[in-house]
Design a binder for these strands. Structure first.
Lengths: 212, 212
DNA sequence: GGTTACATGTAACTAGTTACATGATTAG
DNA sequence: CTAATCATGTAACTAGTTACATGTAACC
């Protein structure tokens, strides 16, 4: 799931680990992924050729000093650049990663994976599903819908003679099925919107939200 | 979290692993915990003295043969009992576990733990919170409410200049905050009910849902 | 010049998974 | 007697965590 999230974010922007973590938290619901898993994951992805370290540019995210005129600041930035570009190994500057072609391929693979049972991964897949071609995206939503519908069905058949559920357990069970219903409704909205979009422009692949 | 769920279920009923797993799925939302984690967990808990294997009785859960009059069945049950009771180690019959006093203490400890940030564990704690004394239960709900309220607040302050969120990401973010709102409302209902209960009978500790 | 926030990394651990191996009980 | 289901367990692996170690840049 981390791999998916990292590749998805890097597909939009070159980023370094620290910034990546912030976005993981802000954009996706991923409650503060720890550096202890993030950096090793980046290393793994780099070794696999799915991402690669690009030499330092000023972070694309809003710089804290908006060209503050400070000469010292500019100088420091220059030194940092030298260190990172020249030394290669050993230097401890920011390491900005970008996605590779192989990474993009892998990302599509992860997004289109038929297994939609992972509750943590699914929202992340939705977050980046814009890069999937329309029909694949629709299929993803529909598979997930089927999965949730099955869960709801199994829940309605509680099997073993129940009745000995206390107030709290009952409340919990109700909350669960409410949440499930809300999720199904959400998916239905996504699916309906997708069908509309597909009917309107059946050849258009990705790139919703383009400038007009 | 598994420990909590196991202790909670055993506090209600003596059970063997296989049956335990079923209930984990049916009662709590835990999607089919694997045996590969369940059995080691039971072993760990037994070694720690929190549960202990009780010699076999016919499972308390509805027996498949409701006193079917079958002599063969009775005989088989008898043989199973002999095997389990006599052989001890080495025999491969059902192993029915019960909770110990230490286990009950540990269960209360886990339920009252001040850390309510674990999203998987919290529902399980609610499922068994009836064994907590009223005020502790209320405190549990209130801490959780505060935790979720804080998450909602952080979400409303999206920090970095956004705006470049596409349709899917926006839909996802909205779903998240809807789910959060629903959960807060659920907690508010639990808290209100708890306050009522506490006001009505401030001395009564646990045991909601008792007869009469 | 010292504190705070930014930034990267490693090591040991935790909590689960899948795949495998085995045996007992029940139903047709 | 044989297949399905019940039942227990182990080993290797996965995906994350916390705690630690270190260094850089910015702020006042």
């Amino acid at each position: 799931m981390l791999d998916l999230a990292i590749l998805g974010l890097l597909e939009e922007n070159d980023l370094h680990g620290y910034e990546l973590r912030k976005r993981l938290g802000d954009l996706l619901g991923l409650r503060a992924i720890s550096f202890g898993s993030l950096y090793p994951a980046l290393g793994r992805l780099e070794k696999a050729g799915l991402v690669k370290a690009v030499t330092n540019r000023p972070t694309p995210a809003a710089p804290r000093t908006p060209m503050s005129g400070s000469l010292a600041g500019e100088l420091a930035a220059f030194r940092a650049q030298r260190r990172a570009a020249g030394g290669g190994r050993g230097s401890r500057g920011k390491k900005v990663y970008g996605i590779t072609d192989a990474g993009r391929t892998r990302l599509v693979e992860l997004l289109a994976d038929p297994d939609v049972s992972d509750d943590r991964a699914f929202p992340v897949r939705v977050a980046f599903c814009r890069i999937l071609p329309g029909p694949r995206r629709l299929a993803l939503f529909e598979r997930r819908r089927a999965e949730l519908a099955e869960r709801a069905a199994q829940r309605r058949a509680p099997a073993g003679g129940d009745g000995r559920v206390n107030t709290y357990l009952r409340s919990l069970l109700e909350r669960d099925s409410d949440a499930l219903a809300a999720d199904l409704a959400w998916l239905d909205r996504l699916i309906a919107a997708e069908r509309d979009g597909l009917a309107a422009a059946p050849t258009t692949d990705s790139q919703e939200d383009r400038p007009s």
